[in-house]
Write a protein that binds this DNA or RNA. Sequence first.
DNA 1: GATGAATGAGGATTCATTCAT
DNA 2: AATGAATGAATCCTCATTCAT
Lengths: 213, 213, 213, 213
Amino acid sequence: MTPAEAQSTSERILDAAEALFAERGFAGTSVRDIAGRVGLNQASIYNHFSSKQALYEAVLDRGLRPLAEILGAAAHDAFSRQASDRAGELIAEQLWRTPNLPKLLQREVLDNGEYLERLIRNWLRPIYEKGLVAIESGSRPDLWDEHERVLLLFAFYHLVFGHFTSAALIRSLGGLDLSSADVHGTYIAFLRKVSHRLLGIDAPPEQKKERAR
Amino acid sequence: MTPAEAQSTSERILDAAEALFAERGFAGTSVRDIAGRVGLNQASIYNHFSSKQALYEAVLDRGLRPLAEILGAAAHDAFSRQASDRAGELIAEQLWRTPNLPKLLQREVLDNGEYLERLIRNWLRPIYEKGLVAIESGSRPDLWDEHERVLLLFAFYHLVFGHFTSAALIRSLGGLDLSSADVHGTYIAFLRKVSHRLLGIDAPPEQKKERAR
Amino acid sequence: MTPAEAQSTSERILDAAEALFAERGFAGTSVRDIAGRVGLNQASIYNHFSSKQALYEAVLDRGLRPLAEILGAAAHDAFSRQASDRAGELIAEQLWRTPNLPKLLQREVLDNGEYLERLIRNWLRPIYEKGLVAIESGSRPDLWDEHERVLLLFAFYHLVFGHFTSAALIRSLGGLDLSSADVHGTYIAFLRKVSHRLLGIDAPPEQKKERAR
Amino acid sequence: MTPAEAQSTSERILDAAEALFAERGFAGTSVRDIAGRVGLNQASIYNHFSSKQALYEAVLDRGLRPLAEILGAAAHDAFSRQASDRAGELIAEQLWRTPNLPKLLQREVLDNGEYLERLIRNWLRPIYEKGLVAIESGSRPDLWDEHERVLLLFAFYHLVFGHFTSAALIRSLGGLDLSSADVHGTYIAFLRKVSHRLLGIDAPPEQKKERAR
DNA sequence: GATGAATGAGGATTCATTCAT
DNA sequence: AATGAATGAATCCTCATTCAT
């Protein structure tokens, strides 16, 4: 993979658009800005994408694909505790590698855009169902009632997506650079610990993990 | 106080602007839209606010004031477990009553706008410092090391702000209407339970709460 | 004459408007600017003048009055060489004391505004006719033919009005501060010398004047 | 070269802008007016010039170029009386052919705009210095002292620029149409006569000219 | 006489998009 | 596939003016 010139123009446009949409949102990004960042004329964008909206959706589609695959695989066999842990970690890894993605998603949720509905229908809904089952079967039985399990699932979502979404805040306030591998490692461990405590499987697995390392 | 007509024009503008900025973001909201929603000519907005940016900041200032007061009070005496619990609940209550606020804040964090810096300097920084101390003194001593306590503080932030920020997603996926008092009650209880588990003070308070109901 | 407060509001408005119209022209001056300079609300201007245009004309009327009187008097008895000299000096004196005036007039000429026509009809035309006669009777008979006398009259106009109108250029390029009394004195003497040369009455009067001083 | 259609759009915009800026000034001219006169959409202007200000400066730059060349050449060898005469004539010729130019310049002087400073630095200053030398070496030695020579140089400037700038006044009052070649010829002759009288080299050249006609 | 508020029209400029080249 | 030029609609904001207080 040679860096920039080797990419197709379409992909270079997608890269620029992804960065700008994540940084400034759909409304805050102009086609001119995107073209400018690629070193292209405004009009050229339309040789590759039929409209700004279409480009935006292509950005989301491309960005979500790897995440969707992970989620799909997780939904497939997320019934053991290890599988659950692994799924969470894989998601966090993926978001860490593609830091624009959580921002794009969070913006889409805030905007309550049309794309969100499609997103939910195609990808989020199945994950959600599997996630509920996973929590039900993976948590200490007496700990959470049915309503709370729904909230717990969303809590996990906020824990992971909020983390990557608030990078600016976390750097400013906490002095942590989320893009550093070190900080990321700490976060991954923290995440596992938190999820075990919330699922009520705290003590033993923790110790095992500590030893395993 | 009759609902709409009794308010000053400036406040009606602030109301409309708050709703629109929360819903569509700064870039996605036009001054014309705001004026239209108040039933005013575009130009009239400028009799009350010197620019769109100034209006935006006035919206945030006004919206943040009650929250800032709660946070300020919390920072003042958040050293007992009860005080901590209470602070979290008050914040959640406040965000529930002003559902635009968390969205505005989250957008500001995503946009990494200039206002964010001021916000951090004036309000968030002191809260953050107090929060760290509160976690240190209020959690089971062996549970979280120094680095993790920072992450834990942000986790609480994500748990609360993410919740209100993702209302659209939670309704679509979880079928929960966050504006309902019932759902809100469940969430408040859930939040306390989660925070106790994360702070390692699970068993006894939980049982008390269970009985109390 | 107490400085500012003793003036009527109308006159303070006229002062501010005169300065701004001279500096930026009619189109470049806003009612808000004028009101601001007087320390008044925009709307208050309309308690004193019915429109921006009316205010502009009031400025010109007020500013032109003293000049018109001088010109009127000059037109009355400008048939001796001394009277001619004196008229030119009086005009130059007046323009020097009211430096906004030549600028306003020059702008009006450039804009070719409606006011100009009225101006010509009421004041400039009679002066022009008298001026032609004065030149005819005051210049060396063989020097200028009929056509040239017209051009000569305008040349005098340019010599005087252009001088005060180009203050900015003269300061920048020539390093002369036209508002200084010294520079003004030099100019007055220069003007007389020039006019004598152009009227063909150079040698003897010059010598006489030199002695007279 | 067919008159209008053969020109590039940019030049047609420059033409329209030049006419309007000269006629109404910068503040009094709207981009819409300019576009309208070219038969273009407002927005199209911005495909050719980055802002109204940039267009204005392009107008001045283009308009001043021929004049600057004449002035530059004049400054090069304006030391004989003939060269001096010729320079003045060339300038007057040029202003006559581009009647918008003197108006634009006079407006710029009145507005005391930023462009004026650049203009002075680049073009006017060198001409001014050469002009002073030309007057010193070309005038009767005992006639003007150092201070007066400065005023005399500006007087020439007023005589020429004021003439073309006041076309409206001259037509109204004097009944002369400055755009007529006849009137222009008279003016050129008049100008030479005036400059000879002011430089104190009256008698002989005058007689020659009188005969020549 | 002063003013805060309202407004329709217009200010410069940017927008996404189209089209001929 | 790229682009210069064109455009209608929209952007934020200012304009002169009005009116009730």
